[in-house]
Each structure stands twice: as structure tokens, then as C-alpha cells.
């Protein structure tokens, strides 16, 4: 698998991680955790609209919304995440997926390989369990996108 197969924003993030040393990668992940946007008010008031990804070791909730274009086909998928400040690693993964996938089409999101998280070069610094948490987050997003758009995952 190469980063060429990834949507460009995600490929750029992967390239950034790969260009760094391990401590710098963790620092970058921390920056992504700080950059994760807050939920819009309509979702903070309705936590039941978010689904928990139980594979994550800290509480992580997410949902997607699809914006329709004029033709009625879904044009852009918007991603929303909620994770406590005391869970920076989980937030960092969510931040990577948000910056890399938010606003893409269902087809683009569904084309992301399931093992994309492995490309970040964090598998030594971060326990396998946590890496699986990120893989589960991506998997959940893809399943929800597939269900919402009628495109097969």
C-alpha cells in the first residue's frame, strides 16, 4: 500500500508523519488532538446522535452527516467526533481522521484502506491496542458512510 492510494489530504498527513522522528510524531499527534474541532451545538445538545466506538480505550463518540448537492446525490461527508481532553491519543487519532477525511465524497472515504493507521509510523510508540482503536474508528466511519450513501464498503 502506498500513500498514492489515499485521498490527498490524508496522504499529506501520512507524509508529514513519515518524515518525522518518533518523538516528533507523537508531538504531531498531540497537535492533532488539540486541533480536533468542538461539536456543533446541535450535536452537543443531542449526544444520542453520536455512536461510541467501544474499541477505543477512552470514550470516543462519532457521527457523520452527508451534505446533498443539487442532484440529490451525497456530495460531501462531514465527520463529528467527541472525546474527553484527558484522552489525547484518542483525540489525536480523531483529529487525523477529521482533517484527512472531512468533506470528502463517500467514494473517497470508502477507498481508504482499512489499515491506513499503520502508515503513521506510530506502531512502536503506541500500543497495538490503541492502534486498533484508530482502525476501529476508521472502520466505523466507513460503515456509516456506506450505510448512509448506499455505496458498498
Amino acid at each position: 500500500m502506498t500513500t498514492q492510494a489515499l485521498p490527498s489530504a490524508l496522504a499529506e498527513i501520512v507524509d508529514d508523519f513519515q518524515a518525522l522522528s518518533e518523538p516528533e510524531r507523537l508531538q504531531l499527534l498531540l497537535e492533532f488532538s488539540e486541533g480536533l474541532p468542538e461539536l456543533p451545538e446541535r450535536l452537543t445538545d443531542h449526544p444520542e446522535l453520536l455512536e461510541q466506538v467501544v474499541e477505543c480505550q477512552s470514550p470516543l463518540f462519532l457521527t457523520i452527516e452527508t451534505e446533498k448537492n443539487d442532484g440529490g446525490r451525497p456530495a460531501a461527508v462531514r465527520l463529528f467526533f467527541k472525546a474527553p481532553a484527558e484522552a489525547p491519543t484518542t483525540r489525536g487519532f480523531a483529529g487525523v481522521l477529521h482533517e484527512g477525511l472531512d468533506g470528502l465524497s463517500p467514494e473517497e472515504i470508502l477507498s481508504v484502506p482499512d489499515d491506513m493507521p499503520e502508515l503513521l509510523g506510530l506502531t512502536r510508540a503506541i500500543t497495538p491496542l490503541r492502534m486498533r482503536g484508530m482502525t476501529a474508528m476508521l472502520g466505523r466511519i466507513k460503515r456509516k458512510v456506506a450505510a448512509a450513501s448506499g455505496v458498498r464498503a
Binding site: 507523537l26 508531538q27 499527534l29 498531540l30 488532538s33 480505550q57 477512552s58 481532553a85 484527558e86 484522552a87 489525547p88 491519543t89 484518542t90 489525536g92 510508540a125 503506541i126 500500543t127 490503541r130
Partner: peptide, 9 residues
């Protein structure tokens, strides 16, 4: 910590 980035925040 269990969370490898918690110390940093």
C-alpha cells in the same frame, strides 16, 4: 499513564 500523550497535556 496508559495514554502515551497524557503527560504532555
Amino acid at each position: 499513564d496508559e495514554d502515551v500523550l497524557l503527560y504532555e497535556i
